[in-house]
Deep mutational scan, measured.
Amino acid sequence: DTINITLPDGKTLTLTVTPEFTVKELAEEIARRLGLSPEDIKDTHNGKTLDPSLTLAEYGITPGSTITLEIK
């Protein structure tokens, strides 16, 4: 299953994830792909900052969802 990550420059990154991924694991994968530190990444969905300890499923993030990435 894939989700879309909207980057600060407007580009989109597509990642393969499972509903059990935590937001922290997602940030780590994004950081790895972009050459950043996971601590520099802030993920938001529907205007809410995502708690790193919760899973994508707990936020109702499903395949095809879009998450907005902010760099701290």
Score class of each variant (00 low, 15 high):
3 I>Y: 03
31 A>G: 07
21 F>H: 06
70 E>H: 10
69 L>V: 14
31 A>R: 05
38 P>N: 07
23 V>M: 11
22 T>N: 02
41 I>F: 11
60 G>R: 01
57 A>M: 11
52 P>L: 13
34 L>Y: 06
72 K>G: 12
52 P>K: 07
50 L>H: 04
37 S>F: 10
57 A>R: 13
32 R>V: 06
58 E>T: 04
23 V>P: 00
28 E>D: 10
41 I>Y: 08
21 F>T: 15
53 S>Q: 09
39 E>L: 15
27 A>W: 15
64 G>W: 02
13 L>Q: 03
60 G>L: 03
34 L>H: 02
1 D>L: 15
35 G>D: 08
37 S>M: 12
25 E>C: 06
66 T>C: 06
57 A>P: 03
10 G>R: 03
3 I>F: 03
16 T>M: 11
27 A>K: 13
18 T>L: 05
26 L>F: 10
46 N>V: 08
67 I>H: 04
50 L>E: 03
28 E>G: 04
16 T>G: 08
11 K>M: 11
13 L>V: 09
56 L>Q: 00
9 D>T: 06
70 E>M: 07
54 L>R: 14
24 K>P: 00
33 R>C: 09
33 R>N: 07
47 G>V: 04
23 V>Y: 05
19 P>Y: 04
29 E>R: 03
72 K>I: 13
62 T>A: 08
37 S>P: 11
71 I>N: 05
39 E>C: 13
72 K>M: 12
34 L>E: 03
23 V>I: 12
61 I>Q: 01
1 D>R: 06
46 N>M: 09
7 L>K: 01
19 P>N: 06
62 T>P: 05
4 N>V: 09
53 S>W: 05
1 D>G: 14
45 H>W: 15
23 V>C: 06
36 L>R: 09
58 E>I: 03
16 T>C: 09
44 T>F: 12
61 I>A: 03
47 G>H: 07
36 L>Q: 06
5 I>G: 00
46 N>T: 15
68 T>P: 05
40 D>I: 11
51 D>F: 03
33 R>T: 10
29 E>V: 08
51 D>Y: 04
34 L>F: 10
10 G>P: 00
8 P>D: 06
38 P>K: 07
53 S>E: 10
7 L>Y: 05
12 T>S: 09
44 T>K: 12
12 T>F: 10
